[in-house]
Nucleic acid binder design. Sequence first.
DNA 1: CGGCATCCCAAGCGATACTG
DNA 2: CAGTATCGCTTGGGATGCCG
Lengths: 132, 132
Amino acid sequence: MSLKMRKNHSPDPPVPCALTECMSIIAGAWAPNVVWSLRSGPRRFNELREDIPPVSAKVLSTRLKELEERGVLKRRVKRTSPPSVEYELTELGQDLIPALDAIVQVGFKLKIARGEWPADEPIPSHARVERP
Amino acid sequence: MSLKMRKNHSPDPPVPCALTECMSIIAGAWAPNVVWSLRSGPRRFNELREDIPPVSAKVLSTRLKELEERGVLKRRVKRTSPPSVEYELTELGQDLIPALDAIVQVGFKLKIARGEWPADEPIPSHARVERP
DNA sequence: CGGCATCCCAAGCGATACTG
DNA sequence: CAGTATCGCTTGGGATGCCG
């Protein structure tokens, strides 16, 4: 494909590489946390809000919808009373876990480098988010 | 500055977990591509612009400065004529490569799932960006 | 409980022009 | 070559309130 300089910002696929492709899924302030929070099983809307304290309902809702459209998770309505909704990772969602885990590992290296994590403490593998 | 209008957006630490920590480094449209482009050695400013076609000079410049401040890469000025500037990953920058590679792997899975990459073709390990 | 509607703000990015 | 300056747009996100 001829990738010529376009005068203006691309109406066409912008750098259609695998990296950008996947990054666009886990971009944004909360999407990675949502996926990460779901890695150990289904969670409900308000559970996710508690997992990721500062997220607003609007944004969480938006992210969830987007992640569902992208095939990362599934929304499941349980017709109980009161009705409850569960979100669960799809296979694609599961595929993201190793990538996120790799990112978390780097995050811990950063904390150690800044002395925010005791260096003698082992780096937790498959570390949890701060879910109390 | 200390007395911000407290009506909106949180003045408090936003989920200081390892995941968010590292994500903030590789967030944005181009930061991951920059790191990825540097993984096989130093690159110059305009080389990076060619590696990542749609990025503007302003944004690239901003990202590079930010990544340098964060300790991800080093800026090295060669006093030739005309002077040239090289950017190179630090150790921290290198640490990011496995994470980005994991992301790229997912990216290829996505492409395959959509039939944009021949399924019989092997998934390139440590795949390159489209650097011709 | 699980959202959506509304309003607003700030960051990120692109385009163009200009500089040392 | 390697940027900076300026501008304006688009997007993401927060706060609050309402609703089935």
